[in-house]
Design a protein around this nucleic acid. Structure first.
Lengths: 228, 228
DNA sequence: ACCTGAACACCGTTCAAGT
DNA sequence: ACCTGAACACCGTTCAAGT
């Protein structure tokens, strides 16, 4: 039998504030991943700790472990989330154009989150990675590749994208122009040991990494694909 | 004035064992790097700690800091040491053959130390790396490349080698056949989402990574170099 | 179900002190 | 010059306990 309501016990007059303090927002896997990526973009991979991440989310570090098994799992999720930003071309885009678009997008997404290539040492098996790998192979098959050729081209394209992203992201993370100048000076000072590097424009960065990647990829696709 | 020797104070009778216990071998930067690589080969990159490394060398962990500034410096040195294993072809080897040889050697050295690609996130500026980068560009110039083309081809080849080494080393580190089987099963179970991957041989590893890399590199060099 | 607090077993690194 | 010992300021993670 429900207790009879007195005039003082009315919903509108009840002291809402006295209730257990409402969390700002309940924690969730998605929120944790978002916060991790924000933190990684801001501070880089070796500054991300579970404690700092928890602080940003206004919870205890140990609270994270209800949603995520380990820090490594979290990093895997963050990496796959970045790959999820890569647009997958529409099905009717022809192989050559579609591949170029997807691979440039993949490269760009990783360079935009320069910490992400340093996570490549772990198996890439997230749904976003697999979806895009499926696209790559599907387009190669559509272009007529199969068997060993297909395998070799898939490996080559994947290696090229990931390796270029890794190399370029490494340099991009160095925001100190003095450090860049030091590298330049080091090579130029050793012109006897590095005669080509010191005179070929290698240290002068006359072209953007992005530009060079797109150019190289274009020619590699020329070699591997029949149609243009 | 030297104290006169008594008959009991003879070199041959002196108690050698009572002297300060001779260290097995004095520490040195080279010995530290060697030990680090041995440890890395045996246990992988995230199991290497300064304390464990010190234990292997029979010193205190803090002793290492007299020879090395930070752990990161040590890892940079270890990586450059691995690249030092890559043979540089003789000067009279023609560009195409020389490049193929050096790049396959680079790939092989990194895969042989599967922890090394995961260190690529740091700038590659060691002497062994620069020597081999110099060789690559010198041979490309010898083949007639210059300017933007030279820059693009250098970046492409470097990206391809490092990315392929990274990807293949990742899989090689998984020595548990059950884990591999799980990946296979995961993709085959999702054949509707991954129709190409599940039927193209992607999961069957009919060819070695080494073989596929060499094949892909060969065709890329065909595209970039004039002579064969 | 979801989070806190205390605790454990580690880390890299510094620095005074020894030889 | 080269190494030890103690100490500092962190880590990731577990687990009992709270709500």
């Amino acid at each position: 039998m429900p207790a009879e309501a007195t005039s003082s016990d009315v919903f509108w007059l009840r002291d809402e504030v006295a209730r257990p303090p409402r969390r700002n927002t309940p924690l969730s896997l998605a929120r944790i991943i978002d916060a991790a990526i924000t933190e990684l973009d801001a501070t880089g991979v070796d500054r991300l700790t579970m404690r700092r991440l928890a602080e940003r989310l206004e919870v205890t570090s140990t609270a994270l472990y209800w949603h995520v098994k380990t820090k490594e799992d979290l990093l895997d999720l963050a990496l796959d989330h970045v790959v999820g930003e890569v647009p997958v071309p529409a099905p009717d885009v022809p192989p050559r154009a579609g591949l170029q678009k997807l691979l440039v997008g993949w490269y760009s997404a990783m360079v935009a989150h320069p910490w992400s290539p340093s996570l490549l040492g772990r198996p890439l098996l997230g749904p976003n990675v697999l979806t895009r790998t499926e696209y790559i192979q599907a387009k190669l098959v559509e272009d007529g590749l199969a068997g060993k050729d297909l395998a070799a081209v898939t490996h080559t394209l994947a290696g090229l994208v990931l390796g270029s992203a890794m190399a370029d992201a490494t340099w991009q993370r160095i925001d100190d122009p003095a450090a860049i100048a030091k590298v330049r000076a080091h090579i130029l000072d050793s012109a006897d040991r590095y005669p080509t590097l010191s005179t070929s424009g290698f240290v002068d960065a006359g072209w953007s990494d992005n530009e060079l990647f797109a150019l190289g990829l274009d020619r590699v696709l020329d070699q591997f694909l029949g149609t243009k």
